[in-house]
């Protein structure tokens, strides 16, 4: 008993000794912030379209089949109304015996950024403020003989024609790590790795703390700092709940391997857009897939292998001279 009472006293004395102005200042700031929030609140609420059902919605992984159907119906109604299109919302699951892998031939990539815009069109990213899931970094070819440092890559290059002589290009998006640091740090369980290897986000459970962005060594996650702006004519109505569902302000988003496409057997949008065929996609568990062929026959590497995140996104050097 003695210990606690004295401790309290000691702490009280310490605080008392310090001028309490700091606390008063803090209270004052808090009051100002409170007023600010109160003023800003109606605008924010109207913009974010608060609705109780979404607020109370369970985590995607905990939804029963009936609850999930309810969510799908609600979203279809909501998006059809908002964007004036026939919307199909799905929560289609993984296929058995499938683990997705991506291959990117850096000997062929010409840095044209067609994948970037195909991705934006497919996945309903905000157009303004601009969010892009793929970043194409430009490097000096001469530097590559030693090593490449991702920090030195230039995503803002501008050339009349690509590829520019003496440069090479490395497009980077989510690496879909087997040991994904982003999902480990998420405090709400809003991001996780699916059985087919796709790291997904439940946008309704993301609280926007951005821990995952700090944890991701590849800069693959993007935060909606502003209210996303997606014109109705650009809206892609083929929606997956944990994929390209339109995002709200204050949530994190990233590449999902086009989950709405690949789980129906289709190739990702960036793969289809690449004019030089530098992008490869397939099932890592199928020995006859193109991704297995290149793993067996090409010089392949992953980014930041030393971090042991075990990415499922492989870069390789495809050309071996003419012949």
């Amino acid at each position: 008993m003695g210990i606690f009472s004295r401790n309290k006293k000691a702490r009280g004395q310490k605080e008392g000794a310090q001028p309490s102005s700091s606390r008063r200042e803090f209270l004052k700031t808090a009051a100002t912030v409170g007023v600010g929030t109160a003023v800003g609140a109606p605008a924010v609420a109207s913009a974010m379209e608060f609705d109780f059902e979404t607020f109370m919605q369970k985590n995607f992984r905990e939804l029963s089949d009936e609850e999930l159907q309810g969510v799908i119906d609600r979203l279809e109604r909501k998006y059809s109304e908002k964007y004036g299109k026939d919307v199909s919302v799905s929560a289609i699951g993984p296929m058995d015996g499938v683990l997705y892998g991506y291959g990117l031939d850096i000997s062929r990539c010409i840095g044209c950024r067609k994948c970037v815009y195909a991705c934006v069109d497919e996945n309903n990213q905000s157009r303004d403020p601009e969010i892009q899931w793929i970043r194409v970094l430009e490097f000096e070819r001469s530097e590559a003989l030693r090593t490449i440092n991702l920090e030195e890559g230039n995503p803002y290059y501008e050339h009349e024609k690509v590829p520019e002589k003496g440069k090479f290009y490395v497009p980077i998006s989510c690496q879909h790590c087997e040991d994904s640091p982003c999902s480990t740090v998420c405090p709400t369980g809003a991001t996780w790795r699916e059985p087919d290897g796709i790291v997904v986000i439940d946008y309704d459970w993301c609280i926007g703390c951005r821990y995952c962005m700090a944890a991701c060594p590849y800069g693959a996650r993007h935060f909606n700092w502003g209210e996303p702006n997606l014109p109705a004519e650009d809206f892609n109505p083929d929606i997956h709940i944990i994929g390209n569902k339109p995002r709200t302000r204050g949530v994190v988003e990233k590449c999902s391997f086009c989950i709405q496409r690949v789980r129906k057997g289709r190739l990702p949008a960036c793969h289809e857009a690449c004019p030089v065929g530098a992008r490869k996609f397939g099932n890592l568990l199928d020995p006859n897939s193109e991704i297995r062929y290149l793993l067996d026959n090409k010089r392949t590497f992953v980014l930041k292998a030393e971090l042991e995140t075990n990415p499922k996104f492989f870069y390789f050097w495809g050309t071996e001279g003419r012949s």
Binding site: V44, R113, P155, G226
Partner: peptide, 19 residues
């Protein structure tokens, strides 16, 4: 060589809105 797509905006060029 072919014509490429426009570069992404630099962080300082992005305008934020709340609605």
């Amino acid at each position: 060589p072919i014509e490429g797509e426009p570069r992404p905006r630099r962080p300082e060029e992005i305008v934020l809105r709340t609605s």
